[in-house]
Amino acid sequence: MNLFTQSIYSGLTSGAVYALLAMGLVIAFRTTRVVNLAHGESYAVGGLSIALLQQAGVPMLLALVAGIVLGMVFLWGMDRVLLRPRASWPVPSLILITLGLAFLTRGVLLVAAGVDPLSFPRLVAGPPLRWAGGILPRQALVLIGVSIVAAIAVAVFLGRTRFGRQLRATAEHPDAAQLMGVNVNATRAVAFLLAGGLGALAAALLVPLVPVDFQTGLGMTLRGFIAAALAGMVPGAAVFCGFILGLFEAFVTSYGGALASDPVVFVVLIVAALWRSRSIRFEGRARA
């Protein structure tokens, strides 16, 4: 096996997931200015519920749909019940709320699904593909493809539709947007439904290859955030940065060892955060 090729394949596979997560994180961030630390839980909720439903004998397709819907409802519900009624709270308090929800979700998932990692059968059967000395499961190819298609679809949605423009208006100035006739609440709802759907979709495609357990969520949130931060919280760039992060992580693991991966990736995060934040002061309140 060729390590270089394999690193590319593995990197693209995890990168596709980070891209989907980062995109959802950014969309929700743009409507609320809150970094949602429970974002990755949509991945865990989606993945674990699909696995549990499948184990309970629910047909695969139904389980998949149910899992994705659960992921969507999860984040939408968080916004509707926890964040939206507290829109006047300071941003740090809202971030703490999302962190609290992440903890609670982890506890619920532990009780519901147990400690062991769960998985479910692949959607695409057949032997893995062997190209250029690397091995790529067919499922992973589908994952990468879906992630790119989803990225393009979301980009078109944001750029060419009324909702997209409303979302950007809301992100710029919620009060002004409301005055201009944008239904801010509906915009938020769609943003969180979309974010949860993308997270659960990532799980639906990756979990057959990489099992999920109750504590996968936080790691996914952090990975998604790194990609989003690198991208400066711009949805299109987030997809690109998700793939870059996946590849970077894979190559660090391949050539630096598994032990190097966390420190290196997070040093990159810190540098990226510094680089990106030079222009942001006073939490965007500079216009006062």
Partner: peptide, 9 residues
């Protein structure tokens, strides 16, 4: 959650 790189090595 993934060991494919290690196995490839």
């Amino acid at each position: 959650t993934d060991a494919s790189i290690q196995l490839a090595q």
